[in-house]
Design a binder for these strands. Structure first.
Lengths: 181, 181
DNA sequence: ACAAGATAGTTTAAGGTTAAAAGAAATTAC
DNA sequence: GTAATTTCTTTTAACCTTAAACTATCTTGT
């Protein structure tokens, strides 16, 4: 009979990192890989802390964040668009959050296909605590970056976002002719 | 009887975007949200193209990319560390890629617990085509960003990465005393 | 040698995610 | 007014992902 083992450390080490930039890769590719590494690193840490501190997940937190600034509630479709995830995904997330008593769901009266969700009183209070901690965590993770550089980075990422949007829009225009809107 | 419907557009619109920067948020938080938006946007587009053009997924592509530069193969654990995902995750991905004949799996002779995976000849050839397209796609998405700005961004993301690593390491140091290595 | 512990990988349970198909209600075209 | 179409949501099947528990093997201390 074996004695109790230390729980296996599935969690990724800060050390282990993708090889971001083999010599022969284009600048664009290296930039994308580094951007992805940064996002993955931060996201993993935030997921971990949300679980450890609030026993919740990032998608649930994101959904609640969307509801927080809409006291009158949001339609599921609008939620799905804002969160950039599929409709079916939202269906499941809402289900679980309702189960936990953090949000409430109500069929629209004007359109009986549609459903509106909003935070409950409890949900609002819980979210306030989570959001505060979340903001602190992000500030902590970026702490070594001077404010000046943070602003510059934010601005440049705006340009990057614009480039991506442009490229995607161009692709859709050529792929779906006559579908203009 | 209804006629055939156009396939539902589950895919997110380029338009629909998270509200990145409510006025009252800290700079750090706004930076993080914008970084996440960029990463999500690019990643979604690449996933979509991998599926449409090669009928594969990003995790599978990533795994093959790790093997590409290791002709002698890689241990599963090493793979898991490099990809920044859990061991169990790699187990499943390897299973499916072996099934597709793109990689091969072999028990290590020196350590019968360990397993080595490497690309098959077929896998290597398929990956070459995928990697080429992938590189083009990324270049296309970032095309509007001047080379100069790409380099600046890459460099600043290096600082960001460093900040995150530092913060995480500091947290682990205080959380797990005596666990130095 | 052998008990104790460490290490490599798999399994399991739970949840997140998507595309596609389908259901239900509203809108539009005639 | 009603058939056709669009819109809002759910369901389904498949995959990705993780933490924790578990199996099998190797290593170490004595």
């Amino acid at each position: 009979m074996t004695t109790a083992r230390a729980p296996q450390r599935e969690h990724i080490d800060a050390e282990s990192k993708v090889d971001e930039s083999p010599q022969h890769h284009r600048v664009e590719l290296r930039l994308w890989l580094r951007l992805l590494t940064c996002a993955t690193l931060i996201e993993a840490e935030i997921r971990k802390r949300l679980r450890e501190n609030f026993n919740t997940t990032l998608p649930r937190f994101d959904l609640m964040a969307q509801l927080e600034r809409a006291p009158d509630g949001v339609l599921l479709g609008e939620l799905s668009r804002r969160m950039m995830v599929s409709n079916g995904n939202v269906t499941g997330l809402v289900e679980r959050l309702v189960q936990e008593g953090l949000i409430e769901r109500q069929v629209s009266e004007r359109d009986r296909r549609a459903a509106i969700v909003r935070l409950t009183e409890h949900g609002r209070s819980v979210f306030a605590r989570m959001a505060s901690a979340h903001s602190d965590w992000v500030a902590e993770l970026l702490a070594e970056l001077p404010a000046q550089e943070q602003k510059a980075l934010w601005s440049q990422l705006g340009d990057l976002k614009h480039s991506v949007h442009t490229a995607i829009a161009r692709g859709q225009r050529t792929a779906e002719p006559g579908q203009d809107r």
